[in-house]
Design a protein around this nucleic acid. Structure first.
Lengths: 339, 339
DNA sequence: TTGTAAGCGTTATCAC
DNA sequence: GTGATAACGCTTACAA
C-alpha cells in the first residue's frame, strides 16, 4: 500500500466546498463562521483524519515552536529523569511540550543536539552540560533573546541563568555531621575528574567542614572513583591506609554505592558513611544509608520557572539559583568513631 | 534590547551577493558551486550566526521531520529512562533525533502528546502505553504507513508492532527457582491493577510454575501493592497469614522494594524473596536480592530496530517481539524453605 | 459570513 | 555555476 499523502487544510476545504481560510477559522476559533459550516468542517476533519501541520503554522506565524529543548547527559540516570519530570510538569501547564535528548556526556553530541533544537526553533533551551563542554557558541542566541537555562552545572564561557544544588553547603553539612559523631579522619571519595563543577564544589564543602572544626586536611584521604567499581576500590584503598579513616564521605551516588559495597563485602560495620545524593534502597541497607539528599524534581521546577519568566520578558541579569539539600539521617552516618 | 530577527538564508545570500538557492546548494552539498563562492557563503554563515530553519525545510521537502516521538509514562523511572537510552543509541546512528514526552501514566496526556508529535510530523511513533489507554485513534496513521511501535505493553484496540519483556517466562523461571529451593507456599505481590498487561502476564508465569510443579494455587497468597508502602503492607499481610508463605515473589521493582523493607524491618531472614526487575543496590542488600532482570536497554534497541525496518519499507504484518529476562542469583532467592 | 492575495523560509525545476 | 520562479501548508490583511 502506497504511503498516502496526508490530507491538508485545502483537502478538508475542498471536501466541504469552502476555502482553506474558512477551515482555518474553524480550527482556530478565529473570526465568525456559520454554525452549519463549522459542523460540516469538523465532520470532514474527522472523515479525512486531518491533523494540522504545526510546522507550517509556526512558520507562517513566525512564532517559535511551542517546545522546550532539554539536553541531559544520560537518559538512564534517574537523577536526570527526575529533573526532566520536574521541568515537564511546569511547562506542560503552559501548553509547552518538552523535548529531551541525551548527550551521552560528550561535548560533541551536546552541541549537535543543541543545533537540532535551534533548527527546530524551540522556544527555550535547557541544558545539563556534559563534563567537557563549552558554551561560547550560544552567545548569539543569548543576545537574540532566546531563554537558556543551565541545570546541575553552570555554563562554561557564557554568562547565563543556572540552577544548581547547594553542593558546597550540602557537603559541608554531611561532613560536619560525621565530625559531630566524633570522627577526625574522614575519607573523601570523589566521582568525576576533579575539574568537574560538582566535584569541586562538594570537595570544597568537605574542606570547609574540616576547617570549621579545626581538623587538618590530609591529602591521602582523598580518592577518586569514576564508577561503582572504581569507587569500591577507592574505598578499600582508604581503609587500608596506615592510619585509616573512621568515616567516609561519598561524593555522588555511584561513589556511595561503591562505598556501600566495599564496607558490606569487607564486613566493616565500624566505619561511618555519608553519601551525597539519595539512593532508592538506601533505607533497606544495613545500616541504612545516611545521605545528603538532592532535590532533582525541585531543581527541574525551579529551572523551568526561571525559564518561563524569561519567556515572559524578564530581562534582568543572569541568575544562579541554589536548590537546597537535605541531610537524611538513617544510620550509617551515626556510627561513632571507633576509639 | 529588541529581539533581533534571526537571519534567514536570504540574508546570507544578500551578504555574499548571491541568491538563496546558491546558499542552499552550499549548505546541502547539492549541485555544483564554485569553490570560492562556497567559501564566501560559509564565511557569511559564520558571521551572521545563521541557523537553517528545519521547519521550513521539512515543509518544502514534504518529508517528515527527522525526529522520532517517544511517549513514556514517567520520566523519573529509570526503567523507562534506560528504554529511551536504548532507542536513542539506535536512532542517533541514523541521524534521527529522539523526542521524549511523558504521559504521567494517564490516557489523556498520552493522547495529547501523540497528537503534538503527529502535528510535528515525526517520522515514527514509539509508545509505552499508560495503564488505561486505547489506541483505536491511531488506526488512520497506521494505514497511512506511519511506523508505530509499542513498548513494554501492547497496544489496545489496534494491531501494531510491539516489543515486550518475556514476562510470563521470566516470572515462571523466578518462581520455579523458589520451588527448586523447597518452597511450596509462595506469596505473589503484584503491582498495578490486575487488568494491566504486565501484571497479568507475570501472574500467569507464577501460576505456570505452580502448575508445573504440581503445587496447589492458593488465592490467599496473592496480594497487591501499588507503591512501595502498599507493597510493604502487602508483604506483612502475607507473612501474618495463619499458614504463611515461606517465600515471596514480587511482581515489579516497587513491589520488590516494599518486600525488602518488610523483611528487613521485621528481621525475617528465613523468608526467600525473588523480585521481577533488577534494582541498583540489589547486591548490597542483606541478603543480596535475587531477581528476574529485565533488559530495558535491549528492549529499546529491539523496538528501535523494528521501527527502522518499517521506515525502510518493511510492510510485513505486525510483530510481537519478546525480550528475554535473566535470573540473577544473589542470595535472597536461595534461602531454603524453613520447614 | 466568506474569499483572495500574499508571504513565512526553504528547495525543485528549469533556464541562462 | 548560478539565478528566477513556483511551491510546500498555513495564516494575516483586506476585500467582497
Amino acid at each position: 500500500m502506497a504511503q498516502m499523502r496526508r490530507p491538508t487544510m485545502t483537502d478538508v476545504a475542498r471536501e466541504v466546498g469552502v476555502t482553506a481560510k474558512t477551515v482555518s477559522r474553524v480550527l482556530n476559533d478565529d473570526g465568525p463562521v456559520a454554525i452549519e459550516t463549522r459542523e460540516r468542517v469538523m465532520e470532514a476533519v474527522r472523515k479525512l483524519g486531518y491533523q494540522p501541520n504545526l510546522m507550517a503554522r509556526n512558520m507562517r506565524v513566525g512564532a517559535r515552536d511551542a517546545a522546550i529543548g532539554l539536553v541531559i547527559p544520560e537518559m538512564g540516570n534517574p537523577f536526570f529523569g527526575m529533573v526532566a519530570g520536574g521541568i515537564e510538569s511546569v511547562v506542560r501547564a503552559r501548553g509547552l511540550t518538552l523535548i529531551v535528548g541525551s548527550s551521552s556526556e560528550t561535548a560533541d553530541l551536546e552541541q549537535s543536539l543543541i543545533a537540532t533544537f535551534l533548527a527546530r526553533r524551540v522556544s527555550a533551551l535547557m541544558v545539563v552540560p556534559s563534563a567537557t563542554s563549552d558554551h561560547r557558541h550560544l552567545r548569539t542566541e543569548r543576545v537574540a533573546g532566546l531563554p537558556i537555562v543551565f541545570l546541575d552545572r553552570p555554563a562554561v564561557g557564557l554568562t547565563a541563568d543556572c540552577v544548581v544544588s547547594a553542593n558546597r553547603e550540602g557537603a559541608r553539612a554531611g561532613v560536619a555531621h560525621l565530625i559531630a559523631h566524633g570522627h577526625r579522619r574522614i575519607g573523601f571519595i570523589g566521582d568525576l575528574p576533579a575539574t568537574l563543577y560538582t566535584r569541586r564544589e562538594r570537595f570544597q564543602g568537605y574542606r570547609d567542614a574540616l576547617d570549621h572544626a579545626g581538623l587538618p586536611f590530609d591529602r591521602a584521604l582523598v580518592e577518586t572513583g569514576h564508577d561503582q567499581e572504581a569507587a569500591q576500590a577507592a574505598a578499600l584503598r582508604l581503609l587500608s591506609l596506615p592510619v585509616p579513616p573512621t568515616a567516609l564521605f561519598a561524593g555522588n551516588n555511584l561513589a556511595s554505592m561503591g562505598a556501600v559495597l566495599a564496607l558490606s563485602r569487607s564486613g566493616r560495620k565500624d566505619v561511618a558513611l555519608v553519601g551525597f545524593d539519595d539512593l532508592p534502597l538506601a533505607e533497606c541497607l544495613d545500616p541504612p544509608l545516611t545521605v545528603v539528599a538532592q532535590d532533582p524534581v525541585g531543581m527541574g521546577v525551579a529551572a523551568a520557572e526561571l525559564m518561563l519568566s524569561r519567556l515572559d520578558g524578564d530581562k534582568s541579569k543572569a541568575r544562579r539559583a541554589l536548590v537546597p539539600t537535605r541531610l537524611l539521617i538513617r544510620g550509617s552516618g551515626e556510627v561513632p568513631a571507633s576509639r
